[in-house]
Every structure is written in C-alpha cells, then in structure tokens.
C-alpha cells in the first residue's frame, strides 16, 4: 500500500460524492417544503387533511426506507405500467417522500409547541391566521425544530448509502468496487472518513444557525 494508491482510490471514491451530494441536497430542497405543507395541513382545521396526512406519515414512517426504494423502483412500474423512473430519480423521489414525512412530524410538533398565548395576543391585535402563522408562529417554530432537523440531515447523509441497492455509483458503491477488486479494506476507511467529513460540515452549519437564533430566549 502506498500514497499513490490511496490518492487514486480516494479520487475514484470521491467521484461517487457527486451522486451522494446531489441526492442529499435534492432531498432537503423538496422534503422540507413538503414537510412544511404537511405540518400546515396537520395543524389546520380541515379534518380531511388530517386523515390524508396521517395516512401518509404513518405508512412512510412505519416501513423501511429500503423497502420504499424497492417499491418505487421495481413495484410502481408493475402497478402502473409505463410509470418507470430511472434509478437516480426513483431514489430521489423515495427520499423526498420519506424525509417529507419525518419533517411533517417535526414541524407539526414544533408548531404545536408554541404557546396558545401567542395566538391569542395576535388575535386581539387584529392579525389574521396567515399573518399569525407567518410572522409569529413559524419564526419561533424554526428555532425549536433546528436540533431535530440537524439530526435528520445527519441521518440523511448516511441514508444516501442505501442507493447502492439500485447499483447507483455513490461513495459506498465506488469503494465497494475497489474492495472487491483489490482485496483491501482501506477504501471503506476512506468512505467512512468522507461521510464523517460531510456530517462535520452539516453539524457546523446547524451550529451556526442555532447560534444566530440564540439571540432570544
């Protein structure tokens, strides 16, 4: 084992990074707004919305993500002929729906943790429901959900590795290839270090956000 070999394998594994990072950002980009809408639906006064959202979150949170990936990629085309996604899109769609359900629950909990007095104060000052939500409730909710959202993001970095089951060339798959070819475990160590580094960045990012929100309370 020499430096040149390590640099070479690291380079190859890093190529898988682009898939991992793309999946990470795509998932957050769409699942957060999805979770936001889900939370609004769950805290709204429309009972039908509650039932629909309850159905969605309990199915998604009660079954394995891996199974969901298989279902979207292999299962959906069987149920609805012609509905076929390529491997990356199938993975991304599953991740968005899956994380959307978790964010729905996190945001719902956050919204419901805001004291009733905040709504009452806003009401007697003449604010509408929308104004109260947008200006008073949600800004306070963001601060409260930052820690669980950070946790989900860390989990997401690691969950992206599940896409190897569809043969997508992410960090894990690329390192696995080298392991199989060269009978050495160093690629796994390199992959672990890359995941660690990515999560380190995520942690720092959320620490800074939390610090920004720490000016009150």
């Amino acid at each position: 084992m020499n430096i040149e070999y390590l640099v070479q394998s690291t380079g190859y594994i890093l190529q898988g990074c682009s898939v991992t990072i793309k999946l990470f950002f795509l998932t957050l980009l769409f699942s957060m707004p999805l979770g936001f809408l889900g939370a609004m639906a769950k805290t709204s006064r429309v009972k039908t919305l509650h039932i629909i959202m309850e159905f969605y979150t309990s199915i998604v949170r009660g079954t394995p993500l891996l199974l969901q990936i298989f279902f979207v990629y292999y299962g959906l085309p069987l149920i609805i002929p012609g509905l076929r996604f390529d491997r990356f899109n199938a993975a991304a769609l599953t991740f968005i729906l899956n994380y959307g359900a978790y964010f729905t629950e996190i945001f719902r909990g956050g919204i419901q943790s805001i004291e009733k007095g905040q709504y009452e104060a806003s009401k007697v000052l003449g604010m509408s429901y929308q104004q109260t939500m947008l200006r008073i409730i949600l800004p306070q909710t963001i601060k409260r959900v930052l820690p669980p959202v950070a946790n989900e993001s860390i989990t997401l970095v690691k969950d992206t590795a599940l896409v190897v089951v569809l043969g997508i060339g992410d960090i894990l798959r690329n390192s696995k290839e080298i392991v199989a070819r060269d009978f050495t475990i160093s690629p796994f160590v390199i992959a672990a270090l890359i995941y660690l580094l990515m999560n380190y960045v995520v942690v720092i990012f959320f620490k800074n956000l939390e610090k920004r929100y720490a000016v009150y309370e």
Binding site: E115, G117, E120, A121, Y216, E217
Partner: peptide, 10 residues
C-alpha cells in the same frame, strides 16, 4: 393585556 404578557419572544 394578559396575565402572562404573551410578548413575542423573537
């Protein structure tokens, strides 16, 4: 005016 103030903390 409320007993518990209900000021906006943020």
């Amino acid at each position: 005016v409320f007993q518990g103030f209900n000021l906006y903390p943020h």
